[in-house]
């Protein structure tokens, strides 16, 4: 069985007028893949990402993550699965402002009940991997966008999740930093074999991944195997 298996997923929002956002999504993602989900705004890609990240429920269909059926979980179970199986990377970083870089990285382990010292050691190790050890005790407001996103990546990696979900990870970064961040994700996939799913509307970003899944109006269109990886110079060059 694939790491992620979606079977005929449907999702309707009922805010006044019913809005059928996902109309039967079927998708399989294998362990170690580096894929992007591409679509315009309103295509349903964010909803799909939220469902993949167990941040939202779906109405019908099935979602298996690492063989486990993810359906109708209570908040506690959902939190536990998110904590252990999924690492999030957000467009706007979502670091906690009054915590230092290392404290932010430690936080997922805090919710796992890992002892303070162990937690700190691990967090330092991951920050070091991101080349941020000298910034460990700085607050997010004292760092650049690229540094913040690398702190967020360290936080996503620290629990050794099954998948990394990145929602427009370069959306708030300049082109040079965007390239750096994508290189970093590529390297994590290649060297550590981490499964990464990137949601984006930028062709340049999607082009860095090995498989591009196009979504449009709530259904999956074309799935491209992407091996060429044209030299990408950031969104400014698009």
């Amino acid at each position: 069985m694939a790491l992620i298996e979606l079977n005929d997923i449907n999702k309707t929002y009922n805010n006044g007028q019913p809005l059928h956002v996902l109309k039967g999504i079927n998708l399989q993602i294998e362990r170690g893949e580096f894929v992007s989900i591409m679509g315009a705004s309103g295509s349903g890609k964010s909803t799909l990402l939220n469902i993949l990240g167990i941040l939202d429920n779906y109405d019908t269909g099935t979602y298996h993550l690492d063989g486990k059926l993810i359906k109708d979980l209570n908040e506690k179970q959902a939190a536990d699965y998110r904590n252990r199986m999924i690492g999030f990377i957000f467009q706007n970083f979502n670091l906690i402002g009054f915590k230092t870089a290392v404290e932010n990285v430690e936080l997922p382990l805090y919710y796992q009940g890992v002892p303070r010292k162990k937690r700190h050691e691990l967090a330092m190790e991951y920050l070091d991997k991101m080349g941020l050890s000298p910034w460990a005790h700085h607050f997010p407001s004292e760092m650049s966008g690229g540094q913040k996103q690398r702190v967020a990546i360290a936080r996503a990696l620290i629990t050794r999740p099954q998948i990394i979900l990145a929602d427009e990870p370069t959306g708030a970064l300049d082109s040079k930093t965007s390239v750096e961040v994508m290189q970093l994700l590529k390297q994590l996939n290649k060297e550590d074999g981490i499964t990464i799913i990137v949601v984006t509307h930028e062709g340049g970003v999607a082009n860095e991944t090995n498989k591009i899944i196009h979504i449009k109006d709530g259904i999956i269109g074309k799935i491209e195997e992407n091996t060429r990886h044209e030299a990408w110079q950031g969104s400014a060059m698009k």
Partner: peptide, 16 residues
């Protein structure tokens, strides 16, 4: 609220 959202996304349970 935003901070609690982050905490929950990375694994905070309602009880936490």
């Amino acid at each position: 609220t935003h901070e609690f959202g982050i905490r929950k996304a990375i694994g905070a349970k309602p009880a936490d």
